[in-house]
Simulated scan of single mutants.
Amino acid sequence: MNMVTPESIQASITAGIDCTHCTVVGDGHHFEALVVAQAFEGLRSVRRHQLVYAALGDRMREEIHALSMKTLTPDEWKA
């Protein structure tokens, strides 16, 4: 089984969401993502997270066991 890397998670997120900024850090088991996207404008936190989960698809169920995330709009990130 391939080791899940922060870079591979970041690539999946940016392939599915037009991000202005995306960073993922982690140790292979637990990951933290900062995702900044205009697509989050007007959405509640739960819906923003659902968009990230959708971008990750089956990886969330099969490969990634723990992902905490901060999801911001570009304006929120600037503040």
Rank of each mutant, 00 (worst) to 15 (best):
M1N: 13
M1A: 15
M1W: 07
N2A: 15
M3S: 14
M3N: 14
M3Q: 15
P6Y: 02
P6A: 14
E7H: 06
E7K: 05
S8P: 03
S8K: 13
A11H: 12
S12G: 15
I13V: 13
T14C: 12
I17G: 03
I17T: 06
D18S: 15
T20A: 14
T20V: 12
T20H: 12
H21L: 11
H21C: 01
C22I: 04
T23V: 13
T23E: 10
T23I: 10
V24H: 01
V24I: 11
V25P: 00
V25Y: 07
V25E: 15
G26P: 02
G26H: 04
D27P: 07
D27H: 09
G28T: 12
G28M: 11
F31G: 01
E32K: 08
E32R: 07
A33M: 07
A33Y: 05
L34T: 03
V36Y: 04
V36P: 06
A37V: 06
A37C: 07
A37E: 06
A37R: 03
Q38Y: 04
Q38N: 12
F40E: 03
F40I: 06
G42R: 08
L43Y: 06
R44F: 08
S45T: 14
V46M: 14
V46F: 11
R48L: 09
H49L: 10
H49I: 05
Q50E: 13
V52S: 03
Y53S: 09
Y53A: 03
A54S: 15
L56F: 10
G57L: 09
G57M: 08
G57W: 06
D58T: 12
R59T: 04
M60P: 04
M60T: 01
E63F: 12
I64C: 11
I64Y: 08
H65I: 14
A66L: 12
A66T: 11
A66R: 12
A66C: 13
M69G: 09
T71L: 08
L72I: 07
L72E: 09
T73N: 13
P74K: 02
D75H: 12
E76G: 05
W77T: 01
W77S: 02
A79L: 09
A79H: 13
A79M: 10
